[in-house]
């Protein structure tokens, strides 16, 4: 049995538009291992939503294959094994949280005897245990997102597909949802997670795929994608004027950081010590995910 939760090969989709056609996916390849939190990032119009809709069977691909937990994407079997949070989560707002969740549980095939307990567990898991009887329209935006996660979790699926989880939420709500994702990860749930928020992706994801112009431009662990080949970052405290030739940059709380070629590490360390500085950490140099995305997008557009 495959250890892949999602497997996408050579997926293509072209939409007909008023003026002609628009290629949304141009041979997308993607692999998500079971138990991973996979961040799916890319600029607007990159093809994220189209690929997620194909995984859910809402859009039919022109060619290629997509498997969800080993079943063809869009099939009833595949949908039984995933929970989905839409980008713009709109629910029947006139209904109570528990009432609507019971209905979703029924549609997901949860047996009548388990429905209520599953709904309560899901609502408690997302921190809405005290608001089970509240109508959805009484919820704040953050609470609606939490409810959305509860409806995705209600059938206890092994895979969650979360489309733009924290878009439009305040920083506190974002933080709370990040913590929720991490707790779901601890339970062994595979999470496929699209986002524009790079900081969020950096903090919760094990692996990242960057899509641009309908194709996956980079894929790997966070460390693989963010580390800069053959460069080392040295964090230190000490005089900066005397080390101006190393071009130190301010880091947190009085610290400085320099990045040097791996081969020049020892020389740089000696130089800092000679100037009376104290070394704090020496680690492979890293970029921010924004920089990686920007670089890939720029390269893609230039090509």
């Amino acid at each position: 049995m495959s250890d892949l939760a999602l497997e996408v090969r050579e997926l293509r989709k072209t939409y007909k538009t008023v003026g002609g056609t628009q290629e949304a996916l141009r041979g997308l390849d993607l692999s998500v291992r079971k138990g991973q939190v996979y961040g799916y990032v890319g600029p607007n119009g990159a093809g994220k939503s189209t690929s997620i809709k194909i995984l859910l069977g809402l859009v039919r691909p022109d060619s290629g294959t997509a498997l969800v937990m080993g079943h063809p994407a869009g099939s009833v079997e595949a949908r039984r094994l995933l929970g989905y949070l839409p980008e713009v989560a709109v629910y029947h707002e006139f209904m109570g949280a528990e009432e609507l969740l019971v209905l979703h549980a029924a549609l997901a095939g949860v047996s009548a005897s388990d429905r209520l307990s599953r709904c309560r567990t899901a609502l408690e898991m997302v921190g809405l245990g005290s608001r089970m009887k509240s109508r959805i329209r009484e919820f704040s935006k953050g609470m609606k997102q939490r409810f959305g996660i509860a409806q995705a979790l209600v059938a206890d699926p092994p895979l969650l597909v979360l489309d733009e989880l924290t878009s439009g939420l305040d920083p506190i709500a974002q933080l709370e949802l990040k913590e929720l994702i991490l707790s779901l990860k601890e339970r062994g749930i595979t999470i496929f997670f699209s986002s524009h928020m790079m900081s969020e992706v950096e903090t919760v994801c094990d692996s990242i795929g960057i899509i641009h112009q309908g194709k996956l431009r980079a894929e790997g662990t966070l460390q693989d994608l963010l580390s800069i080949e053959n460069r080392v970052a040295i964090h230190f405290r000490g005089p900066t004027d005397e080390l101006a030739e190393l071009n130190p940059q301010p880091a947190k709380a009085g610290e400085q950081v320099i990045t040097v070629e791996q081969a020049g590490t020892d020389a740089a360390l000696d130089r800092i010590r000679q100037a009376g500085g104290s070394i704090l950490t020496v680690a492979p140099a890293k970029r921010h995910l924004e920089d990686v995305l920007h670089q890939l997008v720029t390269a893609g557009e230039a090509a």
Partner: peptide
């Protein structure tokens, strides 16, 4: 139009 369709059709329903 209201996008309430998506969470419903993401369920195992033909």
């Amino acid at each position: 139009e209201r996008r309430t369709l998506y969470p419903l059709l993401a369920r195992p329903i033909p």
